[in-house]
Design a protein around this nucleic acid. Sequence first.
DNA 1: TCCATTTTTCCTCTAGGTGGAAAAAAGCTT
DNA 2: AAGCTTTTTTCCACCTAGAGGAAAAATGGA
Lengths: 304, 304
Amino acid sequence: MDRLAQVEVFVRTAGFMSLSRAAISLNMSNAAASRHLSALEERLGVRLIERNTRRLWLTEAGQEFLVRATQLLNEFDEAENAVLERVLSPSGLLKVTSSLSFAMLCIAPVLQEFRALYPRLNVQIVTANRYLDFIEAGIDVAIRTREHEPDSGIIVRKLGSTPRLLAAAPEYLSRRGMPVKPADLMRHDMLVYNLANEPNILNLTRQGRSERVNIGNTLDCNDGQVIRQAALAGMGILIQPLYIIADDIRAGSLVPVLTDWELPILNMNIAYQNKTRLPAKVKVFSDFLISKIRSNPDNGISYS
Amino acid sequence: MDRLAQVEVFVRTAGFMSLSRAAISLNMSNAAASRHLSALEERLGVRLIERNTRRLWLTEAGQEFLVRATQLLNEFDEAENAVLERVLSPSGLLKVTSSLSFAMLCIAPVLQEFRALYPRLNVQIVTANRYLDFIEAGIDVAIRTREHEPDSGIIVRKLGSTPRLLAAAPEYLSRRGMPVKPADLMRHDMLVYNLANEPNILNLTRQGRSERVNIGNTLDCNDGQVIRQAALAGMGILIQPLYIIADDIRAGSLVPVLTDWELPILNMNIAYQNKTRLPAKVKVFSDFLISKIRSNPDNGISYS
DNA sequence: TCCATTTTTCCTCTAGGTGGAAAAAAGCTT
DNA sequence: AAGCTTTTTTCCACCTAGAGGAAAAATGGA
């Protein structure tokens, strides 16, 4: 039998001065209420409420217990309400990991608005050029581009897609010429992001036809921003997601090349551990970020 | 399911960092412990303990709830222990009613010792020359001499028996002569206690023979001490229980008459309400008083 | 004395909780 | 990488504790 229910019957009965009314208010039968009260008195070894069929009154033990019991029930409700409030109003620390580029371009610009919405939730961005382990690094949310997670315990939700482009500074193109067909890339200086799948092989398609090109690597680096800076300096042709160089292209600082050819789309995903109950902070952050990215047409990430 | 048991499983699990060890310590199966914890999390709508088969750790919600939960369990134990202590060490107020005589002669002399034994229990003596109603007067214990209680809800325990005697002051007997046989009483001044059963009829027996005498009443009073004082002043012959005039007889202030005749024995009883659980204070007082009266051979109350 | 109402207890039924065992998972060792 | 050990979770069959309805008992008022 639920000991708290026993205490509730006792407190309600003392309040109403009636077992029947206590039973009604607790949605239980008279018989059940009587049993609950008797069970409590049995366990305590004392009569808490002296009663007959016409009236009842608290014993001295009952009066003392009533004070404590009422306080206990209140505190129990408060404890549960505090937890419930935490669910509705997340707080604490949320650890998000992503590439430096994604953090700079997609998270940092909207973080202030997020903090305004959830003032008690601190967000810590852990930029890394490799995928961190959720458990080892204490990560709550990860932004990843790989198609599949080896760990089936990870939930993956799609943020959007971004095309990969080939682009170079106008100065470089003046100096080295514009590549006309994919094979021309073999004679160009290529700036390679070495964390990509098969970083030295390019698969380009046009009108259903594919061409596979092996490229050298004038620069072999694990950071998109470093590669972008090198390209801006005229060091070669880069292959990067549109969202990273969208502003550069609009500014004319980088010029796309082989634009009638397509490279494989890059899917941007948000990932978190599959838990029996998704922590509120993970949920609110994920929903927020997805909403922000999808509602910005200029960021180079589309969703369909 | 017992909600407190759920909280106990949670707190134990957090302490041991193991559901299995929490289960052992609470004498329940692993399955039951798992269900209790899951049920608590279900009701709260939040994961309190994140866990896999190898380790577990508190969520932030779990950390906060743990503080409150631990306090709740402590306070619940304290509330129950406070009640238990009250049972073992009675306190509060005990209302005892008896005749003035009994209170003066049998209760007052031992009350100090009782209070020393139970310092937190206050005894209130309500002397009355009539029987008070338990419920109306809020009486816990009553000393009564009547043979039967009309209320079957009253428990009656025998304190002892006291013979009733006829006695008068030596001066009165010198002046009016010593009665020789029961019929002589009709020509004497009789001091009648009008609360007795059939106060104006005396049934005296000797060697198996009974004589019934109708007596007049020079004094008709409802208080034994007033009757005693009148007899001491030579106003007439009284009929009173031995325990009231035992000291007067030893002192020679009152002289028993018709001593080879017997009046009906008076049974002294202690009475209290039949309750589902006898209050500790009623029990300890009753036991104490019975013990004191039975161990005093000089008080005029015998027990066999 | 009768009546209405409340508390308690009895009875029957079933829903819920049990433990054991199996499944799944996880981390360590080889 | 595979195997092993241990823990947590879930399933299953069983049993009992708790349910409500009704009757019994009690109580106070009319």
